[in-house]
Simulated assay, not measured.
Amino acid sequence: MGFPGVWMTESKSMIYRVVPKCACSTIGQIMFYSDHGRFFDGDIHDAAEGLHKWSQDHSKPLIEAAVAGHEAVTFTCVRNPYARILSSFFDKIAGIQRNGRRYRGNLVPQLAQQYGIDVGGPENNFDFDQIASFRRFLLFARDTIRWRRPMDPDIHWSAISGHVGTFIANGGRYDRIFFTEAFNDGMAQVLDAATIPVPVDPASVPRFNESEGHGPKRAHKVSDYFDDLSRHLI
């Protein structure tokens, strides 16, 4: 199976297991900067050079060898699951993607029909009942994870443990696992432990939230979205 979702700097200073919706864009840009002294111009997920990725055939043997020899500081980043799935909803379901379209084509119309989810749109300034729609989305997310219907679970709301665990199951070992909620401290520990060509200060790095500005703003604090049933589903 190899090491899906793994990125590595070209200098082999850091190996990172990507966990979607856990600051992965910012981490990827920091890794890129630490090698090249500049940020990637665009979404780091689209970068086809300057960063080794398991999805690139030429990178696979290099990543495999580096993981097997534990040649680099190896880490990942995790997040409170309540905040993470809420972020997934606002980005992937309620938001417009960077290509100007809805995520996964007809997914949102399908959710509107089958689960009664309303997420508004640019034409009405994304005016909708955020709490009610999010709780209905949770039912859909539960169905995908538990019964794989009406589709397989998406990487943006499947369990963090599934992403993190594949790396260990296939022979990898982590040096650091830190929280998105304590990002600067955790990322600084990784950078301090690595031998990087270009110094990086995490506190001065902009947050590369690729979904920001393309959808509704969260109108309530995180806890307001979760009633007793919602917490049970999580």
Rank of each mutant, 00 (worst) to 15 (best):
L139D: 15
A47V: 07
C77M: 14
I96Y: 04
H52V: 02
G121Y: 05
V6I: 11
R101S: 13
G165A: 14
V164D: 01
H45M: 08
T74W: 03
M187A: 09
A112Q: 12
S223Q: 13
A83N: 11
P150K: 11
D192F: 12
Y225C: 06
R173W: 06
S87F: 06
I15R: 07
C24E: 15
V73N: 04
V190E: 08
Y103Q: 02
P109I: 12
R102T: 07
A94N: 01
D228A: 15
A65I: 11
A219G: 09
S204N: 12
D185Y: 11
V164G: 01
R101A: 14
L139H: 15
G2M: 04
F178P: 05
G171N: 07
F179D: 13
A159F: 13
N125Y: 08
F128S: 01
D192V: 12
R98T: 04
G105C: 11
V6C: 09
G186W: 05
P206T: 01
C22L: 07
G95R: 01
T180R: 12
D43C: 07
V67Y: 03
D127S: 13
K21T: 05
D152V: 12
W147R: 15
G37L: 06
I155L: 15
D43L: 04
Q97S: 07
P202A: 10
I131Y: 03
T74K: 07
V205H: 01
D57C: 11
R136M: 10
G172E: 03
G215W: 00
I15V: 14
P122N: 04
D35P: 05
N209C: 02
F40I: 00
W157L: 09
I63D: 05
N209K: 10
R98W: 00
A112T: 14
H214S: 02
A112M: 14
A112P: 05
W54R: 05
Y82N: 09
R146A: 15
R149L: 15
E49N: 10
G121S: 08
M187F: 04
R98D: 00
T166D: 15
R17S: 14
R135W: 05
S34F: 09
